[in-house]
């Protein structure tokens, strides 16, 4: 069995150290997602960016919408 694939806030999503926020999850925990599908929208300094699924599988959300996030943070897992 494959180990879960982490969904992270990419380190290059914004340049500074500041906090962003998960604006909204586009998918739910338990749902099957395809690699490349948009999973969530993240806001930083009023700019909105999408987080894409790094793999196909079942989504497990770890950080709920409206929570602050930083670059490199683990926000979900995708289980095969």
């Amino acid at each position: 069995m494959n180990s879960p694939v982490p969904v992270m806030i990419p380190m290059d999503l914004w340049d500074e150290e500041g906090e962003g926020v998960i604006a909204t999850w586009l998918c739910k925990t338990g749902e099957r997602v395809d690699e490349g599908a948009a999973l969530a929208e993240v806001m930083y300094e009023k700019a909105s960016m999408e987080i894409a699924a790094p793999a196909s599988g079942r989504l497990l959300i770890l950080i709920e919408a409206e929570a602050p996030v930083h670059r490199g943070q683990l926000i979900a897992r995708i289980e095969a």
């Binding site: 998960i22 604006a23 909204t24 999850w25 586009l26 929208e41 806001m43 409206e66």
Partner: peptide, 13 residues
């Protein structure tokens, strides 16, 4: 609208 600071009703997405 899906802007985090206003809350979002999931059924709209």
């Amino acid at each position: 609208q899906g802007m985090g600071w206003l809350g979002t009703v999931p059924g709209s997405i």
